[in-house]
Design a protein around this nucleic acid. Structure first.
Lengths: 192, 192
DNA sequence: GTCTATACAAAGATAGAC
DNA sequence: GTCTATCTTTGTATAGAC
């Protein structure tokens, strides 16, 4: 059992990536975790409390990611690492939980909306810093500002995860590869 | 009253752009349209029937858009027009209904999933044709294939609409401007 | 086409025992 | 922490009258 709270948050995050916040229920979690709805309510009285915990957990994951990236030297290395790890641990057909909650932005509680805004800004800053470093050291080259390019990269990446669900081809692979072509000054890149 | 069915589909589309398919109810529509839930069920017996009608309507809108674009001469004109009209008639804070349904892909009926796939492909082909024409006549210039670039553009555009909800700055404006910089060979473009 | 009334299931949530 | 039992509200849907 170890840490039940953590286990619940994990399963809830899974549900948000698969089905969305409004579309999963305590009944679903009850089945997955193997405890009753009442027990779930003991740990997270309101669904909002659970939603907040999910967002906080993503925030921690971003801090981990930032630390990992800080250990890398070159902007190019950092960029490739980020592109491979932007949304934490996605399974086949999963979308980024942040994207999922953006879609449902108008129906989630204000407390969660504020956290989503924070997460978007953290993610954006993380990428922007890398782009600026890459421009500075000459390993990146693209039209427009690093700010604009960062927004295009994040939105394309997240959008690609969503499109992957409905399109047959490897949308996310195609998009990531194209992003590399648009950003790296040396176009001869083969990812993985 | 004119055409009640159409009116209902319009309102349902609105709800999907604002809240998502699973998160709006016949009660919501009842209040908006001013008829009872029972009457709504008379027009669209199951919610799935209404969902299908919404998708079919988007398909018609794409046909209209294609016709409008066919009347334009230059690839560049076509591209700008498409970028201004990709998702039909969005209000402030709306996301593209296709994106919304991609987020909920795992919970919508198979009939709707198939239609969403169709819509994604129609939209992609529309953009791809324009990019290929622009490359052919020299008005566009970018690294990578038109296929990859088309995917980046569509996913960034749709992703930007979602990010606009959570971020303060003008995400969609920034992204569209940056896309122009990445695609047009003459970088001196000011949109609108 | 539209209504009232109603059925039925699911969702979020609480009380109280163990 | 976990359970059984229960409550309340909402969502989808149907029956039958006007």
């Amino acid at each position: 059992m170890v840490n039940r709270k953590e286990q619940i948050v994990n399963r809830a995050t899974y549900c948000i990536k698969k089905h969305g916040y409004d579309s999963f229920s305590y009944k679903d979690l009850s089945d997955m975790v193997g405890i009753t709805k009442a027990t779930l309510h003991h740990h997270f009285p309101k669904k909002e409390d659970l939603g907040i915990a999910v967002c906080e957990r993503i925030k921690v994951k971003f801090e981990d990611l930032t630390n990992q990236i800080d250990q890398l030297q070159e902007a190019k290395e950092k960029f490739i690492f980020l592109m491979e790890n932007l949304p934490n641990e996605l399974g086949e057909g999963d979308i980024c939980p942040i994207s999922s909650l953006q879609s449902e932005y108008n129906i989630i509680p204000a407390s969660m909306q504020a956290l989503i805004t924070q997460l978007c800004n953290i993610e954006y800053s993380l990428l922007l810093d890398i782009l600026e470093a890459g421009i500075a050291d000459g390993s990146f080259k693209f039209s427009g500002s690093p700010e604009s390019m960062a927004m295009v990269i994040i939105t394309a990446y997240k959008g690609a995860l969503q499109y992957s669900r409905a399109m047959n081809n490897d949308v996310i692979g195609t998009v990531v590869e194209q992003i590399f072509k648009l950003v790296l000054s040396n176009e001869e890149i083969s990812l993985k």
